[in-house]
């Protein structure tokens, strides 16, 4: 195995532990918004799509990459906006102006 792969595995495992620790005792009303916010973050795939499409090697790869960019961007933008809409509903005690 290459050194780069080992380093990447370290990053993956440590980030996973962080993800486990970040979530605790979430009130039920926040389940859906939290799921939605995390879902928007998983749209990070857009970065992979940009890298593949931007490499500009082979027409099929570029086209597939571009489709992936559009889909992932819908996920990101739609995800964050939808989460914000949900959270606006809870705004009873004026959460930060």
């Amino acid at each position: 195995m290459t050194e780069a792969l080992i380093a990447a595995l370290f990053v993956f495992v440590l980030a996973s532990f962080t993800g486990f620790e970040v979530i605790n005792k979430v009130p039920p009303t926040l389940h859906t918004p939290l799921m939605s916010g995390a879902n928007a973050i998983s749209g990070i795939a857009v970065i992979g799509a940009i890298l593949v499409a931007g490499a500009n090697q082979g027409r099929v790869s570029v086209i597939l990459g571009l489709i992936a960019i559009v889909l992932a961007t819908i996920n990101v933008v739609g995800g964050f906006l939808v989460t914000d809409r949900m959270l606006q509903m809870f705004k009873k005690k004026e959460v930060k102006a």
Partner: peptide, 11 residues
């Protein structure tokens, strides 16, 4: 990608 993906996967 690895970090953000792992974060979402675990959380």
């Amino acid at each position: 990608l690895i970090i953000a993906g792992a974060l979402v996967g675990a959380s």
